[in-house]
Design a binder for these strands. Structure first.
Length: 307
DNA sequence: TTGATTTGACCCTT
DNA sequence: AAGGGTCAAATCAA
């Protein structure tokens, strides 16, 4: 009985590893294709695509590492690290400005890059979410300090999303925003209908090379309010130009994608797609499977769209 | 050991 | 009073 389960688990693991490796190869190929296809004058897009691809590949690598080491990704750390809390210091320090509890870090566990992270460039720090700033730090060899934000609903809804915001050194009017973790909260201040309408734009941003998806379906996906909103900030630089400045894949991978209220089946499948993107990683080989991986995602979209 | 990240107390603004 | 920003210190990863 138990051995059967173990055997199944082993098979699943092999399958999963195979899928991840395939995805890794696909992402590598995607990177090469994107490098070739984007014109060299569009530096912003090029750099964002590059960053995004590196993130995909990094995620793949981590997923494989985790899989091979037998650890569950994002497994909750042991927050109640048992150290009993002594209270002696507080009263002694009562006339100091800040009281220090001897056990204040008992549950503190720095995240070891287990969560997906996505970096974007934006002219504004606003993203429709409510954040609480919890720290700021001057970064070594960096002109500008880095600000640390957590989701306002971290405690009331146990939302794990955080972000770091830092002014770009190249362009101080631009913020480099790194999102980590995913919003699990339902923020009542977010409402899709508040988002601006999306202008018409070409039906596909990236040619996915899929025979299973029609241009109309791509149009639905990438002209949806979700994608429009996600690219809103980046497009602000050129609001009159309906041509997207960065790849739809990037928006597909934005953690804030979850912030939007997808129709139920779509939400489910977007979750899958996001997971897949998140599961890709470090590039070491380049092979053939781009179409397969992307097709897989689109195939799932097809399922949704045909619902 | 160093630099980055997170915590929690304190203070300010609304 | 509640919520958010600041800051020193604790903690962690490299």
């Amino acid at each position: 009985m138990e051995s059967l389960e173990q055997e199944n688990s082993s098979i699943d693991r092999k399958k999963l590893t195979g899928v991840l490796i395939q995805g890794q190869e696909s992402a590598t190929k995607l990177k090469i294709l994107l490098q070739e296809s984007f014109s060299s004058e569009d530096h912003a897009t090029n750099s964002m695509v590059g960053v995004t691809i590196e993130e995909i590949l990094g995620s793949f690598s981590r997923a494989l590492t985790i899989l091979n080491s037998g650890k569950a990704p994002g497994a909750p750390v042991d927050h109640q690290a048992t150290t009993p809390c002594s209270e002696e210091q507080e009263s002694q320090n009562s006339n100091k400005k800040r009281k220090i509890q001897s056990c204040r870090r008992a549950g503190y566990r720095r995240r070891a890059n287990l969560y997906s992270c996505t970096r974007i460039l934006s002219k504004t720090m606003e993203d429709g979410r409510t954040w609480r700033k919890y720290g700021q730090k001057d970064i070594f060899n960096s002109k500008y300090p880095r600000s640390y934000f957590r989701c306002t609903h971290k405690y009331d809804q146990e939302c794990q999303a955080t972000r770091q915001v830092q002014q770009s050194e190249d362009d101080p009017s631009t913020y480099v925003i790194t999102y980590m973790g995913e919003h699990t909260c339902k923020d009542p201040t977010i409402s899709p209908h508040l988002l601006p309408p999306s202008p018409p734009r070409p039906s596909s941003i990236i040619s996915f090379g899929s025979e299973t998806t029609t241009d109309d379906q791509k149009e639905i996906l990438f002209n949806s309010p979700c994608f429009s909103a996600l690219k809103q900030e980046i497009d602000e630089e050129a609001p009159s130009n309906p041509t997207p400045r960065s790849s739809s894949l990037e928006f597909l991978m934005s953690p804030d994608l979850e912030a939007f209220e997808w129709p139920a089946p779509m939400a489910e499948y977007m979750g899958i797609a996001l997971d897949r993107c998140d599961a890709m990683s470090d590039m070491h080989s380049s092979n053939s499977c781009l179409d397969m991986e992307i097709n897989t995602i689109l195939f799932e979209f097809d399922d949704v769209l045909s619902v």
